[in-house]
């Protein structure tokens, strides 16, 4: 591309009405930075979202932006990608959206490994409906809008994603948007379904897992007199979740390690890539093994009529099965 695209190319002038200090701002800018870094053509990108505060994200990005239904972001996104696999498809949504009402789609998308990136804004609450408990809120916690402490256990999105079959599974933190940007870049580059669980403080309704809490401001190192952050980067510890060979035994080992790691929470919270396996065929490749010209001439690009607008499909051969043969 001749002209270099800057961040401005990925912004709209739509008024952003998120609460001041919302972690969603960090996610939004990380997405824009990743797209600009990769110099991706805005008109070849489609960003889908669910319903919630997070669902408004596409309106602030100058790419195709599809704000769908509560919980249904994944099937919409998959439909678009499968109809035109040359599109870059991102899906974003809340933790309630993706892991509550949309949990069935979340799990089943993993079985397919369509080449998309799915970002969950994990704030522990249902932001837009005023702070009820989301599926990632731990049992017994009581953010300020809850009349009683949370009665349900929290689910582990990283473990579910790995078990469901996502081939790129990562966690990031909304306020470390450089790191988040890098994770998003890797996720987009990964061929297959990439899932990113983004820890996103909700300054209005979640007064427990706050920015200060993630930063460890409640625990001051007596020597340095600095807070001891809870969030740490997996890559800084030598952790490596990357599957290096097509041998299924290796994937199994990496999965076991990643699953164990995914349960670490509290004093130390890992972010980074938990697991990546580039050897699982994508859904697009699976289709292409049955429909040889699928990738070059996918559903959205097939000419279905000629210049006179008559249909191009020729069903004479398939009609033979039904043809009544006269004596």
């Amino acid at each position: 591309m001749a002209v270099k695209l800057t961040l401005a190319n990925y912004r709209t002038n739509v008024h952003n009405d998120w609460c001041p200090g919302c972690g969603d701002f960090g996610i939004l800018s990380a997405i824009q930075m990743a797209l600009a870094d990769m110099q991706l053509d805005p008109s070849n990108i489609a960003i889908f979202s669910g319903i919630g505060c997070s669902g408004k994200t596409p309106h602030y990005i100058n790419t195709y932006g599809i704000h769908t239904l509560h919980g249904r972001v994944l099937p919409y996104a998959l439909g678009a990608k499968l109809a035109n696999p040359s599109l870059i498809v991102l899906a974003v949504g809340g933790d309630g959206d993706g892991l509550g009402i949309g949990a069935g789609h979340f799990v089943n998308a993993g079985r397919r490994n369509v080449d998309i990136t799915y970002i969950v804004h994990d704030n522990g609450v249902y932001g837009l409906t005023k702070g009820q408990a989301s599926p990632t809120l731990k049992r017994g916690l009581r953010p300020k809008s809850l009349p009683r402490p949370n009665i349900n256990e929290a689910i582990n999105p990283i473990a579910i994603a790995i078990a469901a079959g996502y081939t790129f599974v990562a966690r990031a933190y909304a306020y470390d948007n450089k790191h988040l940007k890098e994770i998003i870049r890797k996720a987009i580059s990964h061929k297959g379904s990439a899932f990113i669980d983004v820890l996103q403080p909700c300054p209005t309704y979640n007064d427990i897992t706050t920015k200060e809490w993630y930063a460890g401001e409640d625990r001051i190192d007596p020597e340095t007199r600095k807070p001891i952050p809870r969030v740490y980067k997996l890559e800084d510890t030598g952790y490596d979740g990357e599957v290096q060979s097509p041998d299924p035994a290796e994937a199994e080992k990496k999965i076991a390690v990643a699953l164990a790691k995914s349960f670490e929470w509290g004093d130390r919270i890992p972010i980074g890539v938990f697991y990546r396996n580039p050897y699982v065929p994508s859904y697009e490749e699976r289709i292409a093994s049955r429909i040889p010209n699928y990738l070059t001439i996918p559903p959205a690009r097939q000419p279905i009529h000629d210049a006179e607008k008559h249909p191009t499909a020729d069903i004479e051969q398939i009609m033979e099965e039904f043809l009544v043969t006269e004596a």
Binding site: A46, F48, I66, T68, L69, R72, L74, P75, Y76, A77, L78, G79, A80, K81, L82, A83, N84, L87, G104, H105, V107, N108, P298, P299, A300, R301, Q302, I304
Partner: peptide
Amino acid sequence: TEDEIAAITMATGAALAGARA
């Protein structure tokens, strides 16, 4: 698909991309 909600929403996504769905 995994259910009929996914069936209609996935078809809709494909239609947005320009396929008759």
